[in-house]
Design a protein around this nucleic acid. Structure first.
Lengths: 276, 276
DNA sequence: TATACTAATGACTAATCAGTCATTTTGTCA
DNA sequence: TGACAAAATGACTGATTAGTCATTAGTATA
């Protein structure tokens, strides 16, 4: 494990229990068994560590959930959405704990913007989902439904957190599917109306620039030792600038890195770029 | 306005915008136009101020809402519950903002216990309400419904906060009544089951001790100048130890202080003590 | 083994903050 | 007016913290 990873892992534990402000860099380095100087070789500041943590885990969470909504073809989209969501909460329990503790903590503008970005991202995912499930019938209440869904997730999450995060993912998913379905079919008085949708425009058209993706692949290649993954990425990098291979080959190459959880974000971007 | 009130008012503004930790005592005193020493004449520490703020406003919120649920006789209990809730949010916007910002902030155990107390209190209020509205039919899902309701309130509140707290209280109330009613009538898969109810036992039997009430009245009397309110309280104080007056007289005396919002908590306790 | 380079250390600095207390100001009596 | 007390002040203390940097330890190469 790299030193950066070690610091992120250990500091998350401390942050989850004490909060950002109450945890000193000294405490983190003691807990990691490294010196204070070593910390500043990995991160320019304490704030940079916090941003890195937020980015890392929010990406994990949002990408997981968005992927499950995008790829599920069956009628059970709602179920898989909730299942993936709470499974992810279970997996990153400490991070969820931290998020609940700090909410919109006013550390700096960068963090606030980031959190707002991920929140909007979540809105977009939920919107895609309910449009897929209910089609046009839901149009007049869909933005209202988004907030109901987010509220329900939040409400039950606080209960879970209090009960030490041991729970039946299947049961809570089925319970929330029922509630969501009931609401979707019976709301006649939406509080949040259609014009809220304008806020989403930017996300509809959002596409990571080719350059960004290119550089992200380059960075990832540098991190990797010789392996199938590295070779696949080198080939994919070329395909971005000059697409020559057959579609099936590109899919296969992406498949080679898909199963490595640390490259989920990259997989997600590649999938989006090559248009699946 | 007393110095204590001034500090509480002004510090709430600062806390709501910057959070507890990020606001220094110096900043508070500067903003109040007083010296640092004067601050410590009113509050023993910064933490004591925070506890006082939480206590003051949580009492306002919970008492308001509980009273509306207890006294409303009509079929519109749900509507009045939401209406009172969001009206109170509107009135104490800065405090709600602060609550959202800090959530379960780990300042100290006392605060955590307090917050848990008020949260349980809210649960109790909601439970009373849905039992009143739906009776026995709701028994198997009532604890589940509590969390759904709290979740919905939270979800929409975060939207309101983001939109600078300008909203139609009637519309959001009607919208949430519809959702609550729909859920209450159709949930078949509760996630939170009946055994959660054991946690409430303590609150069912809860009654403020006679001594506590007696001392609270004494303190309030000391704060008051000569007035009808003061006289009423002096008489009520005697009635606690040796009840002699007719029921109607006691009710009248309580009525005399009922309309003063700063004594809402006291009114609430008196009402409970004399069993209405 | 000598050299050159990187990784790691922890004592140190400068800044911030909660809380104190000797001193001053203000208000209230005779 | 003067004597006294209560209220208010703000410079100061001690503790804590993020971040720095001169120094040392470790490692690879020639």
């Amino acid at each position: 494990m790299s030193k950066k990873q070690l610091i992120m892992d250990k500091s998350l534990e401390l942050f989850a229990n004490q909060g950002f402000e109450a945890t000193s860099v000294q405490q983190i380095t003691d807990y990691c068994g490294i010196s204070k100087g070593a910390f500043y070789l990995s991160f320019k500041s304490k704030d940079e560590l916090i941003v890195a943590l937020i980015d890392h885990f929010m990406q994990q969470l949002t990408v997981d959930i968005d992927l499950s909504v995008r790829t599920t073809k069956s009628d059970d989209i709602l179920y898989y959405f909730y299942h993936t969501t709470f499974q992810a909460f279970l997996k990153h329990a400490n991070f969820v704990k931290l998020l609940m503790k700090e909410q919109t903590h006013s550390l700096n503008d960068e963090l606030l913007t980031k959190m707002r970005y991920y929140d909007r991202k979540t809105d977009q995912t939920i919107l895609t989902m309910i449009e897929k499930v209910y089609g046009e019938a839901i149009n007049k209440v869909k933005y209202d439904l988004i907030f109901a869904i987010k509220g329900l997730i939040n409400g039950y999450s606080s209960y879970l957190l209090f009960n030490r995060m041991e729970f039946d993912v299947d049961l809570i998913s089925r319970s929330l599917v029922e509630k969501t379905d009931t609401l979707a079919r019976s709301i006649t008085i939406p509080f949040i109306t259609e014009d809220y949708g304008n806020m989403f425009q930017q996300f509809h058209d959002e596409k990571v620039s080719e350059d960004d993706l290119y550089h992200l692949i380059e960075e990832t290649i540098d991190e990797l030792g010789e392996s199938i993954e590295k070779e696949s990425l080198i080939l994919l990098k070329e395909q971005i600038r000059t697409p020559t291979y057959h579609h099936a080959i590109v899919i296969g190459l992406i498949e080679n890195i898909k199963n490595h959880s640390q490259y989920k974000w990259l997989t997600y971007l590649l999938t989006k770029h090559f248009d699946f």
